[in-house]
Simulated assay, not measured.
Amino acid sequence: MVFWFPLIFWALAVVLAVVMSLRGARPFSLSVLVDELLRTIMLLPVGLQGLWAFTGHVFFADQTAASIGWAPSPFQLEVGMANFGIGVAGVIGAFLGSPGYRAAVGIVALGFLGGAGIGHVVQIEETGNLAAGNAGPIFYTDFITPLAVLGLLLIQRVLGPVPQR
């Protein structure tokens, strides 16, 4: 079941963004949709998924390591704490984040999650590790999530200000 969490967070983020974009009093526009996508991606794939990963690496280290195809390691505490920081920053960015704050969260997420994604590639190439936690959805979302945040911020900058709520 853990295998599906990254996909569930992403699906919920997209559905919620569309629903929230269409239900507001302001007219629907691309800038409104981009803003809502940023909010829901910050909340779910960055925020709650970061907190979910923190919980797994810190409190369920043995099971989490097994799902990745690794032996348990003391480094999981460090990975878990990094996920905690990114998760909290993502939740804050969903509700209070300025574009600059969200960009900073996106850059930190790109460094950590992108680095983890590269680590997954290395594990696949060097050891053939195709465990669900290494080569499954998390492999793709490690790259897609921070790139989506940064890409949407760029689009938001080009589109200009979002109509007031």
Rank of each mutant, 00 (worst) to 15 (best):
A148Y: 02
V58E: 07
V34F: 13
I144P: 02
W4C: 04
V32T: 09
S31H: 09
S21Y: 07
G87S: 09
T145P: 11
G111A: 15
S98F: 02
P137M: 01
E36W: 02
R39D: 10
P99C: 12
A94C: 08
G119Q: 05
F95K: 14
F112M: 14
A132T: 05
I86L: 15
P99E: 07
L37T: 08
V158W: 03
T55A: 12
V34W: 12
P74H: 12
T127W: 05
G100V: 11
V108N: 01
Q156T: 07
F139V: 05
Q49E: 13
G69H: 07
Q49V: 02
I107H: 03
I155Y: 01
G119S: 05
A148W: 09
G114L: 01
G106S: 12
H120S: 08
R39E: 14
N134H: 11
Q164V: 05
E125L: 15
Q156F: 01
A82W: 14
F75Q: 12
Q76C: 01
S73Q: 04
W4Q: 12
L159G: 06
Q63H: 04
M81G: 08
S67V: 08
F3N: 14
G133K: 00
L51Y: 02
R157Y: 10
F143K: 01
L147D: 11
V14N: 01
V34S: 12
V121D: 11
W52V: 03
V14D: 11
G93N: 13
G128K: 09
G85Q: 07
G119W: 03
P163A: 05
T40Q: 08
G56W: 00
G133L: 04
R157L: 00
I86E: 02
V15E: 02
G87D: 08
